[in-house]
Design a protein around this nucleic acid. Structure first.
Lengths: 238, 238
DNA sequence: GCGCAATGGACTGATTTCAGTCCATGAAGG
DNA sequence: CCTTCATGGACTGAAATCAGTCCATTGCGC
């Protein structure tokens, strides 16, 4: 941890813009694809609507979509009932040789732990509608039956589903964001079958705890689950 | 809680832009002033540097600073050893009649609880350098001796100081952001002397727990402290 | 005193981004 | 068939934003 901890004046102000609108739009859409929010073959919202959601003009959004289409992430169809669809199979990502800071690795992992364990606890404490329970179980089934090459997005989707049960939109956003960041790191290390099996068991444990409203157990399950990938990441990258 | 919880496709993508660069820059700088990151009379970084921190061109930053100067939040001095300074006394804020969503109130409070309690716990678990301990105590003294009209910024500064001890820059950012949002809400309700005294005691308790490394006590103190303002806010706004 | 140097102030032209408009496509439904 | 209409595709002119340059001011050290 090498933070500029003291001298308030030295704390840099958090950026307002991280790049141009085009780049950020590409990144955001890609993030949603990688997290499996839009699974293979599903339709994205119409451009006009998506542009509004992203707070960006349709022209800018279209540039971003065109790039993603050229890169094979998206397919467009014109005409009524057409639209923009997530590709059936996402292209291999050209490993971003960029090694990322090690300090940043710990930062992401720590923050992930904070938000995801809280999400698990709050989900367990919430009173769930039958629909909510069904949604959670469906997400669990999805990730359980996922082939190894579709595991990560479905895993992310599952964890976001848990966060949604917490009822806090800010928490959902935080989980999604930190997942996306962690996902970038995870793409640089191999996916081990043993670890995958272990994950499934932990997912079930988490769901069980949430469904029976056991907040402590839910939090513990979430933390145990996270620690697994933390160890992997530290091993391969640290 | 009225979240669009299911049907992933319906989850809107998180905005990339929340407004134009100018507005966001004003907001960000104002946020830092209100949080007391730049206390009365202190000097902000030079424009060229600040623009870089914010990821915005100097022209845009200057427009924002000009507005804030016109509104009495800032004072500029030219020449070497000149600069832009936080005004000695911040203008009364023109209460933004805007009532804000009630659902959003709960969302902010919930997320604040998540990040701040985690920050308190992590701060207590961290091994603190003497400098860090001194910094924390200094922040405590500051808020302790604050007059009622300077209480809120120093209070925010104190809580951010705690978060800094956690060693996670993401957590610090999250605390600062949620504080700023809560601060907007707090400005709409009166500051009660009794509540203020209560706060001071809770601050001491939190600091004690952090300094002796008692994570459970630190978290408990933080939660107790937050619940105080939560009740106030719900009472006046809910 | 004098010049150095760091700062805010002001301008210019290029680039990005925007809002708005109209066109092209093509499945659904008659 | 033919019409309908929600969608992607393409263009325009305006506005915002940028990077870069030069100017104006002023306290400090020589």
């Amino acid at each position: 941890m090498d933070m500029p901890q003291f001298d308030a004046g030295a704390l840099p102000m958090r950026p307002v813009r991280r790049g141009n609108a085009f780049e950020e739009t590409v990144e955001r859409v890609l993030e949603n694809l990688k997290l499996g929010i839009y699974g293979a073959g599903t339709r994205l919202p119409p451009e006009r609507e998506l542009a509004a959601q992203l707070g960006v003009s349709r022209a800018t959004l279209r540039e971003a979509l065109a790039d993603l289409q050229a890169a094979g992430y998206l397919v467009s169809r014109r005409g009524r009932y057409g639209g923009t669809f997530a590709a059936e199979v996402l292209p291999e990502r050209p490993v971003p040789a960029n090694q990322g800071d090690a300090g940043d690795l710990e930062d992401v992992l720590l923050f992930r732990r904070v938000v995801e364990s809280a999400a698990a606890r709050l989900a367990a404490e919430a009173t769930l509608t039958p629909a909510a329970r069904g949604h959670l179980l469906a997400a669990l089934e999805e990730v359980d039956h996922a082939a190894t090459d579709t595991f990560r997005p479905k895993d992310a989707r599952f964890h976001i589903a848990v966060a949604e049960l917490s009822g806090s939109s800010r928490l959902v956003a935080a989980v999604a964001e930190v997942r996306a960041q962690a996902s970038d790191l995870l793409d640089r290390i191999p996916l081990l079958q043993a670890n995958l099996d272990h994950s499934q068991a932990q997912h079930r444990e988490l769901v069980d705890a949430v469904l029976r409203g056991d907040a402590d157990a839910a939090e513990a399950a979430a933390v145990a689950h996270l620690e697994g990938t933390e160890r992997l990441l530290r091993g391969f990258l640290g």
